[in-house]
Design a binder for these strands. Structure first.
Length: 293
DNA sequence: ATGTTTGTTCCGAT
DNA sequence: CATCGGAACAAACA
């Protein structure tokens, strides 16, 4: 579920609320399938203290003394809930960490309905391997439009698929990719080879804009309420979706197209986001030449 | 009953 | 051998 803004919100809130706490114990639900090795590693982080929280792509990384890392990936339906209440059991709770600082006790709950999420304990080496798997982080890395274009073109696919490829650029998922493409007037099916510097710059700016807005609004919560923050509160970005989930284009009023692109639901306006491919380009060139005559 | 769903990984085809 | 795209992973909801 969560993309960069949602994961960012969760890791920031965690950082402000669990640093300095000690892991008292770990309870894994009986019916939760997790590799035995991970179960053993989880058992070993008992009594470790939390020193920091950060985000790597869509992973939430809880840093422990000394240099061990508790890493969550929420996939589609994962949640992390922080609560002082032990008993109030959130649906789909899979693992509960009891944490404490002085007299204060809290429960960190990992919930996951569809169970595509992952939880891992990594050492420094595996963490740097994890870090190296991912492409530049749109918000953290200072990417130039030039670099962005080069990165995008390294894959021969459509632009939306390239945006969502975490090995190329990290943090962008289906919703924010869809909205950023609308903002920049680019058709999601545009082949990466048909991208140019001007489009690349527009798209990069749109991406930064939409991701920052998403963070400002504490992420997007769809009607199914799968994403909530660590306090159980929904985000607000869904109120500001540009085209995702819409029937009518907010810019020109045209009927919005919905299409599965690489298996993911994609909304786009056929008027504001016309498909420019090799043929269209040639046509444009011919028209240019004609107008010059 | 069928088709949907915010993500990632693996496998088959090219 | 490299690259791409679709299926699988699993659960709930309409």
């Amino acid at each position: 579920m969560p993309e960069l803004p949602e994961v960012h919100t969760i890791s920031q809130d965690l950082k402000n609320n669990i640093v300095g706490y000690k892991i008292e114990n770990i309870q894994i639900e009986r019916n939760y399938k997790i590799p035995e090795i991970e179960k053993i590693r989880l058992g070993k982080i008992k009594d470790k203290k939390i020193s920091d929280v950060e985000r790597i792509a869509k992973n939430i990384v809880i840093k422990l003394f000394e240099n061990e890392f508790l890493v969550f990936h929420l996939a589609m339906t994962g949640r992390i809930i922080l609560t002082p209440l032990k008993e109030k059991k959130d649906k789909w709770t899979k693992i509960v960490f009891k944490i404490s600082k002085n007299e204060d006790e809290k429960y960190l709950k990992f919930c996951d309905m569809r169970q595509f999420g992952k939880i891992k304990v990594l050492d420094e080496k595996s963490l740097s391997e994890l870090r190296n798997k991912y492409g530049l982080d749109i918000l953290e890395a200072d990417i130039t439009p030039d670099e962005f274009l080069r990165i995008i073109k390294s894959k021969n696919t459509n632009i939306k698929n390239a945006l969502m490829d975490q090995e190329i650029i990290s943090g962008v998922g289906n919703i924010y990719a869809t909205d950023a493409l609308f903002l920049s007037g680019i058709n999601p099916k545009t082949r990466t080879k048909d991208m140019n510097l001007q489009k690349s710059e527009k798209l990069l700016n749109s991406l930064k804009e939409i991701l920052r807005e998403g963070i400002k609004n504490r992420g997007a919560t769809l009607p199914d309420e799968m994403y909530v923050d660590i306090f159980g509160k929904p985000g607000n970005q869904q109120k500001y979706f540009k085209i995702y989930g819409k029937k009518i284009c907010p810019r020109c009023g045209a009927h919005v197209f919905f299409e599965k692109i690489n298996g993911r639901g994609t909304y786009f306006c056929p008027v504001c986001q016309p498909l420019i491919d090799g043929k269209t380009k040639n046509l444009q060139k011919t028209n240019q030449q004609k107008s010059l005559l």
